[in-house]
C-alpha cells in the first residue's frame, strides 16, 4: 500500500480511538489544525514505524518537523 494511504488510514483510526474529529486531509492542511494532539502524533509515528519498518524522525539527524500534511507524507516517502 502506498505510504500516503497508510498514513491516512492510521490517522483516521487514531482519531476515532482518541475521540478526535479529523479535518479533511489535504496536502496544504496544517498539522496543528488537523484535530490530532501531540499524543495522537506520538501514537501515529509509533504505528507507522511498526507498519513501515522505519521512523524518519529518529533516523533524521536534522531536527525537522513537517508543518503540513503534504510535508508529512513527503517526509515519510523520502525515507521509504
Amino acid at each position: 500500500m502506498a505510504v500516503r494511504s497508510i498514513i491516512t488510514e492510521q490517522m483516521q483510526s487514531i482519531a476515532a480511538q482518541q475521540n478526535k474529529s479529523l479535518a479533511r486531509l489535504s496536502d496544504d492542511l496544517v498539522l496543528l489544525d488537523c484535530g490530532l494532539d501531540s499524543l495522537c502524533f506520538a501514537i501515529l509515528v509509533a504505528r507507522l514505524e511498526d507498519e513501515l519498518g522505519f521512523d524518519p524522525f529518529s533516523t533524521d539527524d536534522d531536527v525537522y518537523f513537517p508543518t503540513t500534511f503534504g510535508d508529512f507524507v513527503a517526509f515519510y516517502e523520502r525515507a521509504a
Binding site: S38, L39, F41, A42, I43, V45, A46, D55, F57, S58
Partner: peptide, 10 residues
C-alpha cells in the same frame, strides 16, 4: 515506555 520522537515516550 516506548521511545517517541514526539512526546519522549508513549
Amino acid at each position: 515506555g516506548r521511545k517517541s520522537p514526539i512526546t519522549g515516550a508513549i
